[in-house]
Amino acid sequence: MAVERFPVEAGHIMLFARAIGDTNQIYHDADYARGTEPGSVIAPPTFVQASAQFNPDYFLRPKPGQPWFGSGKEPTGVTRGEGGGGGGLHAEQHYIYHRHPKPGDVLTATVKPGKTWEKQGRRSGKLIFTESITEYRDQHGELVVTSRGVGVTTERPVDQS
């Protein structure tokens, strides 16, 4: 998704590393990180996905005063066809690292649409795949990470049997 300003922050990297259960000191200890090859705290390999936090319109974040499709008084806060969505799943994710982001970087993300294709799935009916390419650039305009994501919309929930 396009993001105009994605400031890479040490606290955010620490929280992200905790969420993936990664206790590597390079993600939370600046003193330790100074003595490593990168020379500073760096972001874990999948961190740029958290740029969603800096997209003001990101559709998978509840917003004050707007209906949300998760549960509250009712199992969902929207009726079918009204906003929300979320029937999509992540099918593939690919990264090319030109360098690894670090605290102090201010990234931008620009998105180019990729291919779209269909497939008949054994466990979830017709699958529609959509690819997008996201370029993360730093405050100097230099490419930091190239991301290629593939999303899939399923006809019905994936059969678990």
Binding site: A19, Q49, A52, L60
Partner: peptide, 10 residues
């Protein structure tokens, strides 16, 4: 992970 990544899909 939802909190850190920003993907709050229920």
């Amino acid at each position: 992970y939802a909190g850190a990544s920003g993907d709050y899909n229920p």
